[in-house]
Design a protein around this nucleic acid. Structure first.
Lengths: 326, 326
DNA sequence: CTGAAAGCGCTTACAG
DNA sequence: CTGAAAGCGCTTACAG
C-alpha cells in the first residue's frame, strides 16, 4: 500500500480512510499529507473483496430508456453519488426471469444494497433477497427486515384527476386504464371510481377501456371509444403516454381538445407540458421518488431506519381540460 | 476455492473457467460436474482484483434520463449483456469537470473499457484515456490506438431534411439550430445550407435562429421568428424536441401545421410519432448507435479491430410537412 | 492508539 | 497438461 511508504502501517491508513478507529493526530496528518501528495485513490475492487463492501448499489429497473424510470434513475444517481456510492443499473424488461437474472448478476458483483423499481417479481422473492442484503422496493407496499418500500398514493392521484373533471361539470367521463399487472394502474382506477361515487355519478363499465400505458394503446383505446358511439365529454387516461396517444386519436377524427372533450393524464412527464394542447395531468415527482429511494437505501446501509416518504400527487391544470358548456 | 473440493487444483479450475489452457477431458468433466453440483458462481470482484479484468465497461452518458441517450444506453446494455459484461452508467451533465470525475470513478473501479457518449471533454483528454484502456467514443471523429469513434452522418441528415422541404416547393425555410457546442448541431446546419445551395436558394441568415435542443428552446425560437415578421413557409428544427416546442408555439398563435407552415425535426425519437400532427423527421437509430458502440468495445476488448458503422439517416415523412400551395 | 498477520476469491507466471 | 506459490490492494480480528 503506497501510503505506507509515508510513515505508518497499512492498518493505520485503512483506519483513517474508513474512520474505523481513532488515530493520533500526528499520524493522521502524516497520512493525509501522503495521500494528497501521492494522489492516492483507494481501489474499490480490493475494498470490496477484503471488507465485503463495494460501495455500489444495484438498481433493477425495467427499461433503462423509459421516460418514467429514466427520471427515477436520475434521482437515485444524484443521491447515491453524493454519498460515495455508485449505482449499477440493470434492466428486467418486465419479465420475471430476466429480473431474477439481473439481480443475480448484481449479487455476484457484491453490491451493498438493492433498489427494485416495480417489476414482476413476486413479493416473497423480494423479501427473500432482503435477507441477503438491504433492499428498497419502489411501487409496492410490503415489509420485512432490512426491506423498505416506497410508493406514490396512486389512488389519491386518480381521485383528484377525476374530481377535477367532475368540477368542470363533466359526468360522462371515460377512463383509459393502465396495464392491470401494475399495482398502480389498479389504484388509479380505484381513485377514478371513488371520485365518481363521491359525486353521485353512476359508474358505467362501458366507459372503461383497457390500455397498456403506451401511446399506441391510448390511440387504440380512443378509437374503440369513438366507435362505440357512447356519449362522453371527458377522458381520464391512467398515464401521460396514453393521454398523448388519445389526443392524436381525437385529432385524427376532428374531435377538438378541450372544446369537444377534456383530457387528463397522469405522471407529468416532460412531454405533457409540450403536448398540443398542453396536458392537464397529475404530477408525481418521479425524480423525487428516485432520490427518496436512494436516501432510504443509505439509511439502511448505515443501519438506520429509513423515514423516506413521498409528497402527495397534485393536479397540474393546463389546457386540455375545460368547463363543460351547456 | 470451492470447486477444488471436487478433485483438482484451483489453477485448473481457473483455467477451465477462463478457457486459458487445454485441460484433460477427465478433469474437465469432473470440474464441470462439481461446478454444477455446487451451483458455483465465480466472484467478479475477486476476478477483477486478481486478473485485472472486471467484466464491466464504464459508460459515460450526459443525462441518464435523456430520451435520446436512454435509447443508446438500452442498445449498449443489450449487447454487453450478451457477452457477459455489465455496463456501469455514470452521468456527466454536460459539464467537463463532472465528466472527468465520473470517468475517474469508473477507472478506480477498474472497468475494462470506456464508452463515451458525447460530452464536453476535449478530444485530447479522450485520447489520453485511450492509453489507459480501450475506449469508444460516440459522436466525434477522432483516432488513436485502442480508440474507436462512431457517429451518424449529421450533415447528410440535415441535407435530406432540407431537400424534402425544397421538394415540397418551399423556398423560405427557417432553421432552428441546435446547441453550437455539439458537433452534430453544426453538421446539421451545414446540411441545411448545402441543400439550399444545391437548390439555388439564397441563404438568409435571418432565418436561422439559435436553439438549445430543448422543447422550451424550440418554443422560444419560433416566437422570435414569428415576431420578426419575416416570411417563411417551413421550419427545419435541428432535433425533435425543438420541433415539438416549435409546434406548440405555432399552435398558440394559430399558425396551422402543415397548412400554414411545414415542420421537420431530427432524430425520430418516440414522441415524434405521436406529436400533433405526427412529425416528419430524420431517423437515426439511436438504439443501433448504442449497440454498435458496444460491439466495437467488445472487439477492442478481444484485441480485434472494430468495424462497426452506422446506417445512414433516412427521412421519415409524416404529417407535419406538405407541398406548398400556389 | 497501533502493528503484524491472515485472508477476501481468484489468476498468473513458474516449474515441472 | 497441471500444481504450488505468490500476489492483486485492501480490511479486520488479534495482540499489544
Amino acid at each position: 500500500m503506497v501510503a505506507l511508504a509515508a510513515g505508518v502501517s497499512p492498518s493505520t491508513v485503512s483506519r483513517i480512510l474508513n474512520g474505523t478507529a481513532t488515530v493520533s493526530p500526528a499520524r493522521q496528518d502524516a497520512v493525509d499529507a501522503a495521500i494528497k501528495r501521492l494522489g492516492f485513490r483507494p481501489n474499490p475492487v480490493a475494498r470490496g473483496l477484503a471488507g465485503g463492501r463495494t460501495l455500489s448499489v444495484g438498481v433493477l429497473t425495467q427499461t433503462i430508456s423509459s421516460p418514467f424510470y429514466g427520471e427515477a434513475l436520475h434521482g437515485i444517481e444524484d443521491q447515491l453519488e453524493k454519498a460515495g456510492y455508485i449505482p449499477i443499473f440493470v434492466s428486467g424488461h418486465w419479465h420475471e426471469a430476466e429480473e431474477r437474472k439481473a439481480i443475480e448478476a448484481l449479487l455476484s458483483r457484491r453490491v451493498d444494497g438493492l433498489i427494485v423499481l416495480a417489476g414482476r417479481l413476486p413479493n416473497q422473492a423480494l423479501q427473500a433477497y432482503a435477507k441477503q442484503l438491504p433492499t428498497v422496493v419502489v411501487g409496492r407496499k410490503l415489509s420485512a427486515a432490512r426491506l423498505f418500500s416506497l410508493g406514490f398514493d396512486n389512488e389519491a392521484g386518480g381521485l383528484i384527476a377525476t374530481q377535477h373533471l367532475v368540477e368542470c361539470g363533466h359526468d360522462r367521463i371515460a377512463f383509459i386504464a393502465g396495464d392491470r399487472a401494475h399495482e398502480d394502474a389498479l389504484a388509479r382506477e380505484a381513485g377514478y371510481r371513488k371520485a365518481l361515487q363521491q359525486a353521485g355519478i353512476a359508474f358505467d363499465p362501458t366507459l372503461v377501456i383497457a390500455g397498456d400505458y403506451t401511446e399506441a394503446g391510448g390511440l387504440l383505446a380512443v378509437n374503440r371509444l369513438l366507435e362505440s358511439r357512447l356519449p362522453f365529454t371527458a377522458i381520464f387516461a391512467a398515464n401521460d403516454q396514453m393521454a398523448i396517444g388519445a389526443a392524436l386519436g381525437l385529432y385524427r377524427r376532428n374531435v377538438r381538445v378541450p372544446d369537444d372533450v377534456s383530457l387528463v393524464g397522469f405522471d407529468d412527464l416532460a412531454p405533457a407540458k409540450f403536448a398540443i394542447p398542453p396536458l392537464t395531468t397529475v404530477r408525481q415527482s418521479v425524480y423525487e421518488m428516485g432520490s427518496q429511494a436512494a436516501l432510504a437505501m443509505l439509511d439502511l446501509l448505515r443501519g438506520a431506519t429509513p423515514s423516506a416518504s413521498l409528497p402527495p400527487p397534485t393536479l397540474v391544470p393546463r389546457e386540455s381540460t375545460r368547463r363543460v358548456l351547456r
